[in-house]
Simulated scan of single mutants.
Amino acid sequence: MHPNQNSSRSSEAELASGEEEQPSIGAKILHRLRQPETTSDMLLAIKGVIAGTAAWALSVFVLESDVAFMAPWTALLTVHATVHRSLSRGVQTVVSSAVGMGLAFVILQFFDVNIWSFALALLVGLVGARLSWIRDEGVAIATTAIFILTSSEPMFADRILELLVGVGVGIAVNMLIIPPLQNQQASRYVDSINRRIGAVLVEMADEFSESWTTDSADEWLKDTESMSKELNSAWQTVRFARESERKNPRKLLLRRGKKMHEDVSYEEILTRVDEGISHLRNLTRTLREAAYTSGGWDERFRTGWVSVARDTGLAVADPDESVEPLYDRLRKLTSDMSEAENLPNIEWPTYGALIASLRHIIIIVDDVASAREARQTD
């Protein structure tokens, strides 16, 4: 079929897709609320409220502070997305706030609080915030100095005690109240990308079984680019998941359970998935260029290759699917075509490229399927 000719089946598919019922707003909201990222954000906000309120209550009812701002403020600064960040940034907050108190003490001792001394305190605080070892929470130098300089009764000893209480409460809340483990997000990304690869392969086989256009190939290339972007998000999630496991008491409790499982190597799996996307892109480009070649396809090859490609797509989408028969079928197709009598007349460079790309995808599917724990199968 000429590449500029539109197939009737494509038009019917577009018409059918336009008639599909769109999900309601309530369903979209419910789906969004069920997302792991939304759950993590809501949990982090709840923990921030608990930490700040608890720190304020300790300052008011236990320490009997008249101006209980330092403890809840530092508690909020300390509650982060992972336990590791809470610990590391909690230490930075303590150091930065202590430096800010020292800066405010010097200003109060040697200068009056006026526009020039206040500006000097902010300048020194913001410059100090650029230090690499406190950069994440370095701005606390300036903000702590502001709190102290604008307070009618600085009371440095009380402020330091409130600072320690706030940081301690923030760390304790983040460690005790469902410290996050982000493996669910990582597995969701892995499963999403695999299902998308499988869907493209199935669609590709369906198109190639009859006829296809360069427009279809262009859409498949756009899909692979979108998969690459989603893969980048998956890498970010995996790195965050690894950080969430550090110093996490939940991980220690899970290791003490009856069933001991090896950690899933998402890094290795995503590397293989990236290779799968590359081979799918090469496969798409080969079909795109083949649309311009003259002559027809060998029906034995077309039928055999389409069957293997469609079943490979289904296997990619299903983590429980076995791929060993697919490899054997592709090898048999190669052997049968090699024994064809009209071998010189067959477009073997194109056929070989299609077979090679599909072979690599099958091998990658087998590798990814061997780690089913890394995918959401529900």
Results as ranks from 00 to 15, higher is better:
28 K>Q: 14
30 L>E: 07
30 L>P: 03
30 L>T: 05
32 R>K: 09
33 L>V: 05
34 R>G: 06
34 R>L: 06
35 Q>C: 09
35 Q>W: 15
36 P>Q: 01
36 P>F: 05
37 E>W: 06
38 T>G: 07
39 T>I: 09
39 T>C: 09
41 D>P: 00
42 M>P: 00
42 M>F: 03
43 L>S: 10
43 L>I: 07
45 A>K: 03
45 A>W: 00
45 A>V: 07
46 I>C: 13
47 K>M: 02
47 K>G: 08
47 K>P: 15
48 G>A: 04
49 V>Y: 15
49 V>N: 08
51 A>W: 04
51 A>K: 10
53 T>K: 01
54 A>D: 00
54 A>Y: 02
55 A>G: 07
55 A>N: 03
56 W>K: 05
56 W>N: 12
56 W>V: 07
57 A>C: 05
57 A>M: 12
58 L>H: 06
58 L>A: 15
59 S>Y: 01
60 V>W: 02
61 F>C: 00
62 V>G: 14
62 V>Y: 12
62 V>M: 15
63 L>A: 13
64 E>T: 11
65 S>N: 10
65 S>G: 04
65 S>F: 00
66 D>V: 07
67 V>T: 13
67 V>H: 13
68 A>Y: 00
69 F>W: 12
70 M>R: 06
71 A>R: 03
71 A>W: 01
72 P>C: 08
72 P>Y: 08
72 P>D: 10
73 W>R: 05
74 T>C: 08
74 T>M: 11
75 A>E: 10
76 L>I: 12
76 L>A: 13
78 T>K: 12
78 T>C: 15
79 V>N: 15
79 V>I: 14
80 H>E: 15
82 T>E: 08
83 V>N: 06
83 V>E: 08
84 H>M: 14
85 R>L: 05
86 S>A: 10
90 G>K: 13
92 Q>A: 04
92 Q>T: 09
92 Q>H: 01
94 V>M: 14
94 V>R: 04
95 V>M: 13
95 V>R: 11
97 S>Q: 11
99 V>F: 15
99 V>E: 08
100 G>M: 06
100 G>L: 06
100 G>V: 02
101 M>N: 07
101 M>A: 05
102 G>E: 07
102 G>A: 11
102 G>K: 08
103 L>T: 04
105 F>Y: 10
107 I>D: 03
107 I>Q: 00
108 L>P: 02
108 L>D: 06
110 F>E: 14
112 D>Q: 13
113 V>F: 10
114 N>D: 15
114 N>I: 05
117 S>F: 08
117 S>V: 12
117 S>M: 05
118 F>C: 07
118 F>G: 09
119 A>T: 12
119 A>S: 14
119 A>M: 11
119 A>P: 01
120 L>W: 04
123 L>F: 15
124 V>W: 10
125 G>E: 11
125 G>W: 13
